[in-house]
Design a protein around this nucleic acid. Sequence first.
RNA 1: GGGCGAGUGGUGGAAUAGGCAGACACGCGGGUCUCAAAAACCCGUCCUAGCAAUAGGGUGAGGGUUCGAUUCCCUCCUCGCCCACCA
Length: 818
Amino acid sequence: MKNYDSKKIEPKWQKKWKSQGLYKAEDFDKDKEKFYCLVEFPYPSGEGLHIGHAFTMTGADVYARKKRMDGYNVLFPMGYDAFGLPAENYAIKMGIHPSVAVKQNTETFRRQMEELAFSFDWDREVNTTDPDYYRWTQWIFVKLFEKGLAYKEEKPINWCPSCKIGLANEEVVDGKCERCGAEATKKNLSQWIVKITDYADRLIDGLEQTDFVKKVEMAQVNWIDRKQWIDINYPIKGTDREIVVSTTRPDTNFGSTFVVLAPEHPLVSEITNPDSDLHKEVDISDETVKKVKDYVVETKKKSEVERMVIDRKKTGVFTELYAVNRIDGREMPVYVTDFVLSTIGTGAVVGVPGHDMRDFEFAQKFDLPVMRVVVGSDGDTSPVTKRGQVQEEDGKMINSGFLDGMDIHKATEKMMDYIEKKGWGKRTIRYHLRDWIFSRQHYWGEPIPMVNCEKCGWVPVPEDQLPVVLPQVEKYEPTDTGESPLAVMTDWVNTECPKCGGPAKRETDTMPNWAGSDWYFLRYLDNQNDKELADMKKMEYWMPVDVYLGGDEHNTLHLLYSRFIYQFLWDIGAVPKSIPEPYYRRVSHGVILGPDGQRMSKSRGNVIVPDDMAKEYGVDVLRTYMMFMGPFEGTMAWNDNALKGVQRFVNRFNTYIQGAADKSDKGVEVAVSKLVRKVSDDLDSFQYNTAIAAMMETLNEIEGKKISKKNAKVMVQIFAPFAPYLTEELWEILGCKGSVHVTSWPKVDESVLADEEIEIPIQINGKVRGTVKVSPDVSEKAVREAAMAVENVKKHVEGKDIKKFIYVPGRIVTIVSP
RNA sequence: GGGCGAGUGGUGGAAUAGGCAGACACGCGGGUCUCAAAAACCCGUCCUAGCAAUAGGGUGAGGGUUCGAUUCCCUCCUCGCCCACCA
């Protein structure tokens, strides 16, 4: 059998398609319903398109192609998220300007994506590093600043002492610099912060307007993590002061035995300062002051990551202070310890060692009493706790005065009410979500469009002066001071204040990676617009994104940030009022592992390059194989042999269709009709692997029979989303005009299927004993007669009563006999 | 520690409003073609007994609901991903 010649037909159709504009999305098309199919745009690395890109984009492409054939006006765009460290590192190493590398890389990516036959509307391409694009990224920042959602603050950031560069959290892996492996430390730098926490509630509540898969929705909710806390005031014995302790579990209050403060807690700096007012009120020995001081100094040396290592031995210092628990009047010793983090709650925690592992460890170390106040369903009240016991879902209160016998949730409410009524504390909602540190000390990013004036303070660059173009620099290397490489460009940095005209300096930090990708889906709608982000009418027509395909690694960062920015744009009226959320549906794609089942990496030598595979097997085989490997959301290992199996199928398909005759043999039409139904359903729900399996199954079934040209055309059409080149070639060979990719998806011919007999299994006492063929609309009586006539059934029911006869129409016959 | 998800042949995986477990593919065994190999094609392939028809067992372990459970419920075990001294 001859293989189809991918090397010949691929360039042929590529050339034709390019001139035809088959995949253009039509703004305001009135005849068709719109469908916005979005797939995450890539970072165009120097290595070119990797197999993960090819896989994800093929999955999106199949969907877009199906929707197009279903008659939708499909918008399926592509672009490049091209700011970022790799281009900068490459520039440092090779001395080539990042923009030059980006240009080369995007050209490679575009060529590869065209070869893989992705049906993108290339007229809408965007690039986040294009000044006409980042002008609007900067514009959004200015708006954030104007609305008080961006502010500058001194914050400790991750710092690599070896690279001399600030690191984003995501660039710190296991406490080490992702690039050089050096231990990351903290450094205080003045940072732009964006108040995403103002949107915490809306980011949770807005999910109701979307149809994300549960996994994604939960990831967002858990990341934001909205919880009811209560801040309780404990008087400090011998003073008029109070320590404000925060907790979500006041029900365990009767079990508290000590109070612990973060080393950064304000009270601690008073303790370490002998001249502070605190020392006038209460005596603290010089020895303790020194110990606390030393402890704080020690803590500062440690990186945050170091402090957060699990199961680290608990350390701390007694402050000689006592906090009074007003609920029962007990006096509890106050300690300073580094396991309490100043960024969580009030930075002061009440220790309940009976029900919290960390508190338990601390109590063991300092010989503090342990008390159980909750008993779980196991009835265990021994004082030794295991990790997480405080989380008991169904616990009941004991040793807790007026809470005794209550379940923990009720007790929590009761205690919160009680404390608030007494005026000893206050409920407060807190989130795990933190404000977004928006400054990066890198060169290759969007300049933050702000100017610092001696007189006026921070002033945004006026809209008509945007974009603030990233200047050419001699050196991209980071500086010793933690400033961006832009800081040395004095003639760029020194400028005039837009407000008063006085001397001022530009912000030299750049934006994080996420900034450009926050809103790119809007720019696709109107990528040439120089008046606004995008035309309001176009946004009204196309938004929201109907389906958004991406990786799980973006569920909490990119997806949350971009929803936040969209909600902000909605608030300022920059996007349509009728569309409060940007993405309707979110679908996660899977991951392809190397042939060894390990994550692909150069060092392992298990990298599969899509270009190579396309050359060897042809694009259609590669695409079909990737979609056949397993469920679209799954993690799958590459397998060359399975790829060859798909190649066999594609070749057989080609040969079979080319042999199409005038008339189909018996059964062929029914098989094709059934297949259309199956493939249609599967493609709509991203079940590509079973769609392809069904095509293989059908081909196996009909291969020995003749197929009519009419049926052959249908086969070609339903395979078209997977194998664009071969099907286009076959479409031509079958004598059809135009492109198969702009035809209408075939309809299921129900009349063909209607007279088909179905096989019904017959179960006796739960065991299948035979089958019977009936037409789908047959009566129960007729089925019963037919079933009883089956030899093996007769044998099993002979001489027995039939207790029950159940016919589930079209499904099964069940006979129950004693 | 928390959250989410998953355990099915030698392998990737099918089948869940409860209804023939193992589709499809790989691999393996046998065969056709060939001087030979590759490719291609054909037959077989969950386990046990049997030439076969058929019978018994079988979806991580144990229990439950049901005429019927891979699917639903309870207990437990294992693995994966994300997050994490979140008080």
